[in-house]
């Protein structure tokens, strides 16, 4: 098991390097001549500018070095916890500091959403499977498909209008992060959860149907166990593996959607940081964020695999 774990972690490194190299190189070239930008031309090379200042910035940024050397340098620093500073917002604290402060809130938000999507999606999927191809099945699947198709940046404002403004069920939102168990977290977490709802419902439904058609379930039925007992005792446990995978993969999608949710609910998290960085063309911040989010997504999938291994001992042996 330990060897498997080590191998898995090692096999992540190449992907991590390629992803960050891609981001770094594209970002550095795409952003244009940063030194010129900083020296006052704001990217327009036809304007005259302070040559001395320009040279100074070039040197500081290491722009005379070849790109791979700059990348290697960045990576080396990154491995030591230093992701550099924003070129655009010179007054901002270092990127690593910003990320350290933003990530926990986003992770908690994602966690809350994952819990929600699980406790809503899995039961719906089970019910849909039990009544497969019946009226209830169609309603549940279409319903979750509707909820998942509505983009977060439409669902969230609608939810605010209905729940907060009209019904006044929840306290006013838009005033930041109040912690995982605060009332204010319910709405953003719910909107985030809806992103993954269809996936979870569908996977649960399909894997339950698959297990239902299997031999041992028929045998259990033949032994005279009641339908409810069959489902509770045999089906759900055996159908859970794909469901866990899908929930794990949903985690990545949810992280992606925080970019909208955090902005709308004014949560100073990771998504907010990225969306601001993107809007300002702040390449250092975005590159750092890419590194961290890739690590998070990979750890997520590793976690899924481990849970998988704990539940199903066969995986441990074969992999």
């Amino acid at each position: 098991m330990l060897r498997y774990l080590v191998r898995r972690i090692l096999s992540m490194i190449p992907l991590l390097i390629v992803v960050t190299a891609f981001t770094f190189v594209v970002g550095q070239y795409g952003a244009g001549d940063l030194a010129a930008y900083l020296a006052g031309t704001r990217g327009d090379s036809t304007k005259g500018f302070d040559v001395e200042l320009y040279q100074k910035f070039r040197q500081e940024l290491g722009m005379d070095d070849p790109i791979y050397a700059r990348y290697a340098n960045w990576l080396w620093n990154a491995a030591h916890g230093d992701l550099g500073r924003s070129y655009v917002m010179m007054g901002d604290p270092p990127v690593a500091y910003l990320i350290k402060n933003a990530v926990p809130q986003s992770l908690q938000l994602c966690l809350a959403a994952l819990v929600l999507v699980t406790i809503i999606g899995v039961p719906l999927g089970v019910v849909a499977a039990v009544f497969s191809n019946g009226f209830l099945d169609r309603v549940l699947v279409s319903g979750s498909s509707i909820l998942s198709s509505i983009p977060s940046f439409v669902l969230a404002p609608v939810a605010i209008i209905v729940v907060v403004v009209r019904l006044q069920l929840l306290p006013s939102v838009g005033v930041g992060w109040h912690g995982l168990f605060a009332k204010e977290t319910i709405l953003p977490a719910f909107c985030l959860a809806m992103v993954g709802l269809l996936n979870v419902v569908r996977t649960t439904r399909v894997s339950i149907l698959e297990v239902l058609s299997q031999e041992y379930v028929r045998a259990a039925r033949a032994r005279g166990l009641s339908e409810r007992l069959v489902i509770a005792r045999h089906v759900i446990r055996n159908a859970m593996l794909p469901v866990i995978t899908v929930i794990g993969m949903t985690g990545a999608g949810l992280l992606g959607a925080t970019i909208f949710i955090e902005q709308i609910f004014n949560i100073q998290g990771f998504g907010m940081m990225v969306s601001k960085g993107l809007q300002r063309g702040d390449i250092m911040t975005v590159t750092g964020a890419v590194l961290v989010s890739t690590v998070i997504v990979m750890l997520f999938s590793l976690g899924v695999d481990l849970v998988y291994g704990l539940i199903d001992p066969r995986v441990r042996v074969t992999k």
Binding site: L15, V18, T23, G30, A31, G43, G256, V274, L278, T294
Partner: peptide, 23 residues
């Protein structure tokens, strides 16, 4: 392909869009 897919798609699109716009 797997690498592209591990990454939250909207972030990747947003990043490429920002990074390639000047070019």
């Amino acid at each position: 392909i797997d690498g592209v897919m591990t990454f939250p798609a909207i972030w990747l699109a947003a990043f490429v869009s920002v990074a390639t716009a000047p070019a």
